[in-house]
């Protein structure tokens, strides 16, 4: 059994394929640790079994004799582990310093975490829900949180940093294109991105991807990303945002009550607030509810809506989309009701 477990430790506990430039260093250290651990586990378990087999109790009154102490031995097994762990510390600290210090020429991406999603902002102002980066270039991520503590974690890059409200943390990585097979033929490669700090209800769905591009592929992606709403009506664009900005996690379109109020037949109808008033929902009401979450205090709901980072264009699209979920929505004077309903149903593609 011990040999099986020892084997499991050598072969079973291995890291996922490393993609960042410093992953190799971490993996070397990891392997070193594993060798040391397996060695000590085997020695300790082996001795334990050996002694059990070699020195069983033969008679209840056995009087085994042996030394009760041996200072030289004690010092030995104090000093040797000390040397080993100090070597591990030094190695680990050196690796950590490399991981903690972004190179000066890094490409900077602002990472905004909120309950429960990610938003990535690029130097030209473009935003996305997946992190797109060019290969062969150090990427510095600046981390900010809109609400609680999250943690930015990409296993393949061996990288993790908490996203703490009220301060900016940062970390960096670089992906080597040729070693990871990012070529002109396969210009994109995806890696899992997790939130690693528990942040509430949908913590486990705060999962995204890092897409590493060749430099050319990245440039063209960035251009497209800078104009996401192009060619879409506000309602279509809003429907897309409804999914991608995680509104769907809390607001239904069919009238059922989730964490937040439904969007169905919300616009144009009165809504009961905690202060007792019941205003009719209009454009400004919706806009304020998105931009300053929880400022109305809707009766029967917890004030848990996060402030999701949105551009003006995106807010307008969302407002239009939410209006379109109501039968009071008459964009062209009332005659077109059915049509607008259809438009609203033209929901986002999977």
């Amino acid at each position: 059994m011990i040999s099986i477990l020892a084997q499991a430790q050598t072969k079973g506990i291995s890291l996922p394929e490393g993609a960042s430039t410093y992953a190799g260093q971490v993996d070397w250290l990891w392997n070193y640790l594993t060798y040391v651990s397996v060695f000590f586990t085997v020695v300790i378990a082996g001795l334990m079994v050996l002694f059990i087999l070699r020195f069983p109790r033969k008679h209840p009154d056995d009087q085994p004799h042996g030394h009760t102490h041996n200072t030289a031995l004690e010092v030995t097994w104090t000093i040797i582990p000390l040397i080993i762990v100090m070597s591990i510390f030094l190695w680990g600290f050196r690796g950590f310093l490399d991981m903690a210090t972004p190179p000066a020429n890094s490409y900077e991406v602002l990472v905004t975490a909120y309950k429960w999603g990610w938003n990535f902002t690029y130097p030209n102002g473009a935003t996305s829900e997946q992190l797109h980066v060019p290969a062969d270039r150090p990427i510095k991520v600046v981390l900010e949180s809109k609400d609680v503590i999250h943690s930015f974690y990409v296993p393949a890059f061996r990288i993790k940093k908490d996203v703490v409200p009220g301060r900016y943390n940062e970390t960096w990585f670089e992906v080597d294109a040729t070693r990871n097979g990012i070529t002109l033929d396969a210009p994109e490669k995806e890696y899992d991105l997790f939130c690693a700090e528990y942040c509430g209800l949908n913590h486990s769905r705060m999962v995204s991807k890092v897409v590493v591009h060749t430099p050319d592929s990245f440039t063209s992606w960035l251009e497209a990303a800078s104009d996401q709403g192009a060619g879409l009506t506000p309602v279509e664009y809003g429907a897309k945002l409804y999914k991608s900005k995680t509104c769907a996690q809390c607001h239904s379109l069919n009238g059922s009550k989730l964490i937040g109020p439904t969007f169905k037949d919300a616009y144009g109808y009165p809504i009961e607030l905690k202060d007792g008033s019941s205003p009719i929902i209009d454009d400004n009401f919706i806009r304020q509810a998105i931009v300053q979450p929880n400022s109305h205090g809707v009766k029967g709901y917890q004030p848990v809506m996060p402030a999701i980072p949105l551009s003006d264009q995106e807010v307008t699209a969302l407002v239009t989309f939410i209006k379109a979920q109501s039968d009071k929505y008459q964009p062209e004077g009332g005659g077109e009701e059915a049509e607008s309903g259809d438009e609203a149903k033209a929901e986002p593609e999977q």
């Binding site: 640790l33 040391v36 651990s37 510390f89 943690s151 990288i159």
Partner: peptide, 27 residues
């Protein structure tokens, strides 16, 4: 106990090692 503590203790060194900890933290 000795078996489990040996494994628990040795993996503790993984967790104490800075560069490795970054990867396995909160996993």
């Amino acid at each position: 106990f000795i078996w489990l503590f040996t494994i628990g203790g040795l993996t503790g060194i993984y967790c104490a090692t800075l560069a490795v900890n970054i990867h396995i933290h909160d996993t």
